[in-house]
Simulated scan of single mutants.
Amino acid sequence: SGRNSERVWQTDGHSVELGQNDTEPIILEGKCLVVCDSTPSSEPAGNALGMSVRSGSGRVAFSASRQTNHEPTDMSNRTMIIYFDNILVNVGTHFDQESSVFLAPRRGVYSFNFHVVKAYNRQTIQVSLMVNGWPMISAFAGDQDVTREAATNAGLVIMEKGDKAYLRLERGNLMGGWKYSTFSGFLVFPL
Rank of each mutant, 00 (worst) to 15 (best):
S38Q: 08
V34D: 02
L18G: 01
Q20F: 06
L28T: 03
V8F: 01
V34S: 06
L18C: 05
E29L: 04
V34F: 03
V35F: 04
L33W: 05
G13N: 07
C32I: 14
P25W: 11
I27G: 05
G30N: 03
T11W: 07
G30F: 06
D22P: 00
V8W: 02
N21D: 11
G13I: 00
D12H: 06
V8T: 02
T11V: 12
I27H: 04
Q10Y: 07
K31Y: 08
H14T: 15
C36G: 11
Q10C: 07
E24G: 15
D37K: 14
E29Q: 06
D22N: 14
N21C: 01
E17Q: 09
D37W: 07
G19F: 02
E17R: 15
C32Y: 02
G13M: 09
T11L: 13
L18Q: 04
G30D: 05
C36E: 06
I27E: 09
I26W: 07
N21R: 10
T11G: 01
G19L: 15
V16I: 13
L18M: 14
D37R: 15
D22Y: 13
C32N: 07
G30I: 11
C36V: 07
H14C: 02
D37L: 07
E29S: 09
E29D: 12
E29R: 13
I26L: 01
G19W: 02
W9C: 08
L18P: 03
T23H: 05
N21H: 08
V35I: 13
K31N: 03
T23W: 01
N21I: 15
W9D: 12
Q20A: 09
C32E: 00
D37Y: 08
E17K: 11
K31G: 01
V34W: 10
S15G: 07
K31M: 03
D37H: 15
V35G: 02
